[in-house]
Design a protein around this nucleic acid. Structure first.
Lengths: 217, 217
DNA sequence: CTTGACAACTTACACCATAAGGCTTAGCGT
DNA sequence: ACGCTAAGCCTTATGGTGTAAGTTGTCAAG
């Protein structure tokens, strides 16, 4: 009985929301979102599932928290410099790079609108730099939203794609249904297989940032 | 005993993959992806859960199938016309509109790379029109991928946003954490609340399609 | 009428989120 | 040194989940 006391005291380090979220992200990175359960998360922390509920409202809260952590990572990677255009680019790249580092967590991000302080701080900084440089405020917001959509969409599709290739599908053909006609299969290879995601990401970014103030279309 | 036979015969109409997928999409539209279970899906079809497995490999297969149905809807909405630039625009709008009509199914689309015949047919048609009009083939592919990323990202963020507003969050403030400082809250309102998603979608599209052949950045 | 195939049903199991309640321990005032 | 309190952790219990395995009912071809 008393032996058990000292044993626990030595082994266990204090649980906290912070620690839980980090463990959750680590678990998702390794095993994927769909494999995460409160039991496993508890186990990863050397603790019973229900103990987590002392620091976290429920599983959804954990997931939201993970998204928050990711936004913090993005913010840290995108501190703005002098040129606003370059800043926007850096912001988009930060999104892409961070999500690229946590590919299995990507599905959470676009669908859990956590307006974390981190993400808002990042946005604020970007906008201010833009306006400071003479960009119309409304346009600055619109452009930033557009770029964010693009960066998230790109990250979603490509990280997911790479995951699929790495894990289960060694070639494009394996992603096609059995009844795919040849001409469409060929298209699939060209459309999905050939290009360099990094270069292409920069392409879209360049297109959007090239010249903002000219009339559109 | 014999009464029960005729009863079943009358009542039950044949199950099929097709019917299952449609029911799944309908259920998702009404209750969201996370609420869908094989039991409920079976119930919606007047059938036991396990019967579905005669037509469908597993739940993942159902979800993939739903994405396929969505791509078919997109294809039907984006048949190409004469001007390739306009076609690309139409393709992007089709993605956005269809996903806008099935907001709760959106989370499935970017993360289930179903290369359905429908989506490939659409891509093929777009590309051919572009090349026919003198666009470099490689550039045509890259641009189409870029636009697709953008359309999916935009749809993901905004449909999700509107869902959140309609269901649980009457104002932007409700999406913020309690500890959000005032200046950041203000940014959140401007960044998230003010703009017209349609107009903004067109803005991004216009930026990307304006002039393709000039060197980038 | 028999046989077979196959669709749908039933049963069974391991796992899930989480509500309710019990135990252990740390930190305090005395 | 003592017990009090509150918080952190654990145990137990409930109803829902995906799906494997085995059973029953139905119809068509022989």
């Amino acid at each position: 009985m008393t032996t058990r006391i000292s044993e626990t005291k030595v082994r266990r380090e204090r649980l906290s929301r912070e620690r839980i979220l980090r463990a959750a992200l680590r678990y998702i990175d390794e095993h994927g979102v769909e494999k995460l359960s409160m039991h496993k998360l508890g186990a990863a922390l050397g603790v019973e599932a229900m103990s987590l509920y002392n620091h976290v409202a429920n599983k959804g809260d954990v997931l939201d928290g993970v998204v928050g952590v990711l936004w913090e990572e993005i913010e840290a990677e995108a501190e703005p410099g002098a040129d606003w255009r370059e800043n926007y680019r850096r912001f988009a790249r930060a999104i892409r790079d961070v999500l690229g580092r946590h590919p299995r967590a990507v599905p959470l991000v676009p669908f859990r609108p956590v307006m974390s302080n981190a993400s808002l701080r990042a946005v604020k900084a970007q906008i201010e730099k833009g306006v400071e440089s003479g960009v119309d405020a409304e346009e600055a917001y619109a452009l930033l939203r557009t770029i964010t959509s693009y960066a998230l969409g790109h990250a979603a599709i490509y990280t997911n794609w790479e995951l699929a290739c790495a894990s289960c599908a060694p070639s494009v053909s394996d992603l096609l249904r059995d009844d795919t006609p040849d001409d469409l299969a060929e298209i699939a290879h060209v459309f999905c297989g050939q290009s360099d995601p990094d270069a292409e990401f920069e392409l879209g970014l360049g297109l959007m940032l090239r010249r903002v103030s000219t009339p559109v279309s």
